[in-house]
Design a protein around this nucleic acid. Structure first.
Length: 450
RNA sequence: GUGGGUGUAGCUCAGCUGGUAGAGCCCCGGCUUGUGGUGCCGGUGGUCGCGGGUUCAAGUCCCGUCACUCACCCCA
């Protein structure tokens, strides 16, 4: 087989599909910048002790090694980053003297994980992160802000409806401690399995592995069942009759996020308190987020994050942060693969300038240049084939307009090949409608994509 | 890493208990003397993932291998 085959877990898009992705990336960038987030890019590589400093070897890090290194020689001590949060924490510490705090940044980059690929789970993928870090203390309203910005960004995406679920680990920990549980983290990890396992199984695990009694188990499950789009969840939690200071703090914080975001007009994104969310055993210390996409719940969360109070610490100063990251590849690649998302054309060109004969190429070039001067992407036909062929060239690429240069007795004409309409036009003044200036998004079926 | 599935044309697939490879779509040309899309006619294109074995004969059976894929795990 001489033709190369795809590499599993390393998705590549065709040009029209890439245009859809570019649309999404442009949108994200615009929203993030509207909210004043600065862009940074960090190197692809981190030192292994940075990547593994939480002692988690299960991150499936790709390690770098020079091809020319001696047989059996050690690796370089470097690995590709598996997310953007850890590199960001390192970047903040490294540049703490040069950054202004609170520091708000967005970062849209590739990340790599050596895990076995599956739908929506890749070895190389793009993430879009926003984070805010401060020195020593980070006010709680930033938790609200991060959720707000991401909800706004998500609401403009050409994807099925999304549900941004919010919870708070102080609430969970306080509740569990108030119940007399010794190891709240173990309970969180087990309750987190409710997505995959039936409630009875989780109950069994809570008793067997976390050592809870029947009453504790029932109340933990009852807590996890609570979900609300407004602060009515507070009363539901209170009704379970558990008391703890940390629980009070968590309830207040979560209520604040929900009431602030719930009031926003966020289109196809709904925001709700969801007390089942636990987020494994990561570095999160307060607010936590998870996002499900309608019809694609099997992908798991497509956008998650939370508050981390101790991720960056140089020994003298602490840099608490809160952030949320969107799995751009996780969302887009499955939609594209199912034909539910692509763009109207495979090229940026809005206009194909026809070529009468090879000798008149300068005339056609001049027309194209005149259009470009006004921001209209244009290309000139590759060869002076019959006009039928040139129109077909445009059609194949999704270019909406074909320009016919003026002849001895005819004026310049532009044809909209979608409806066949053709009319006289002046290269120095004609413009397509705004909607045709750049490739448009095409979405179909499988949920109400806007 | 542990299990299951699948590999035939660019794409989607057919090929019964072994008998020297097919369809639709796509693409190219013509009908159509500089204007595409519909229609009709014709055409290009495959060492049947790779290697080995059984057989007079293997896309078809056996072994191995690689790739892709699904589930577990974990997560974006």
């Amino acid at each position: 087989m001489s033709r190369p085959t795809p590499l599993s877990g390393f998705p590549e898009l065709l040009p029209a599909e890439r245009n859809a992705e570019l649309y999404v990336l442009d949108h994200l960038r615009r929203v993030f910048e509207l909210h004043g987030f600065a862009s940074i890019e960090t190197r692809a590589v981190e030192t292994l002790d940075q990547l593994l400093r939480k002692g988690e070897i299960d991150k499936e890090v790709y390690v770098l090694r020079r091809l020319q290194a001696e047989e059996g020689g050690a690796d370089s001590g470097l690995g590709l980053h598996y997310d953007l949060t850890v590199p960001f924490a390192r970047y903040v510490l490294e540049n703490s003297g040069k950054l202004e705090f609170p520091f708000r940044r967005y970062q849209i980059q590739k990340a790599w994980r050596g895990e076995r690929p599956q739908e929506g789970r890749f070895r190389e993928f793009t993430q879009a992160d926003i984070d805010i870090v401060a020195k020593d203390d980070l006010a709680f309203h930033f938790d609200v802000e991060v959720a707000h910005v991401m909800a706004e960004a998500l609401s403009g995406l050409p994807v099925p409806p999304l549900r941004l679920g919010v919870n708070n680990r102080k609430l969970l920990e306080g509740f569990y401690r108030g119940l007399g549980v010794d190891d709240p983290a173990a309970v969180m990890r087990t309750v987190d399995k409710l997505d995959k396992l039936p409630a009875e199984r989780v109950a069994d695990l809570l008793r067997a592995e976390a050592g809870l009694d029947v009453d504790q188990t029932n109340r933990c499950l009852a807590l996890a069942q609570i979900s609300a789009a407004d602060d009515s969840f507070v009363d539901q939690v209170r009704a379970l009759g558990v008391e703890h200071d940390l629980l009070d703090t968590g309830l207040d914080e979560l209520a604040e996020v929900i009431s602030a975001i719930g009031a926003l007009e966020t289109g196809s994104v709904t925001v709700a308190a969801d007390l089942r969310i636990a987020r494994g055993l990561d570095y999160y210390t307060g607010t936590v987020f998870e996002t499900q996409m309608a019809g694609f719940e099997h992908l798991g969360s497509i956008c998650s994050g939370g508050r981390y109070d101790a991720l960056a610490d140089d020994g003298r100063n602490r840099y608490p942060g809160v952030g949320i990251s969107l799995g751009v590849s996780r969302v887009l690649v499955p939609l594209i693969a199912r034909g539910q998302l692509t763009a109207s054309r495979s090229v940026p060109s809005a206009v194909l300038v026809a070529l009468v004969d090879e000798g008149s190429r300068p005339d056609s070039n001049a027309i194209a240049q005149s259009l470009r001067a006004r921001g209209i992407a244009a290309e000139v036909a590759a060869t002076a084939q019959k006009f039928g062929k040139q129109i077909r060239y445009a059609e194949r690429r999704g270019i909406p307009y074909v320009w016919f240069p003026a002849g001895l007795e005819s004026a310049h004409q532009v044809k909209d090949i979608r409806d066949g309409g053709q009319r006289d036009a002046d290269p120095s003044t004609w413009s397509p409608p705004d909607a045709d200036m750049t490739p448009a998004i095409n979405t179909t079926a499988g949920g109400e994509a806007q």
